[in-house]
Amino acid sequence: MLHTFVAYVEDLPGVLTRVASLFRRLNININSLTVGRSEKAGLSRLTLVCEASGEAGHRIRASLFKLENVVDVDDIAQAPNVTRELALIKVAATPHSRSQIFELVEVFRARIVDLTSESLMIEMTGVESKIEGLIQVLNESEGQILEICRSGKMTMRRGHHTSGVLRALGAANADLEEAAAVSLQDLSAVKQD
């Protein structure tokens, strides 16, 4: 089954290698991985999607927690969530063939973000199936796809869910410096999730 892990990790050199290396060691292929800054100073948030047995979820999460730089791990699994992906698609299009692509973009609620006499670039955000849909339709239309760049999935639980680990790290609005200090020094107060 498809697992989606959301993890907060310390924003330090090599941390991503440690996370990726764990999956390599378990011989699990990472389908997608997105990383960026989180609401906490000094912590990055990553969303990692991988295919593994249902039983493997517990062990992967437990193993991620064993990494010194990993502060919190959530296995989103089947929980209600919002998942999005960003895609940039460059399509060959002459002034004559543009209008058909414009229509498609409209239908898919995407945007044109770059336009030249030979090509245009489409930006689209949405669930995976929607992006796949646009790509399929573009392939079937006259326009030739030149490049596709996809971000991988980003996921957030629906509702007011915050893990015990993050609660112990303090409020999201706290002074940034303070939050960083807490994250590195006072994790002893972390309660079990």
Binding site: A62, F65, L184, V190, Q192, D193
Partner: peptide, 11 residues
């Protein structure tokens, strides 16, 4: 170092 962080999945 900061106090040891027990594994959050101890139960």
């Amino acid at each position: 170092p900061r106090a040891h962080r027990p594994h959050p999945m101890l139960k």
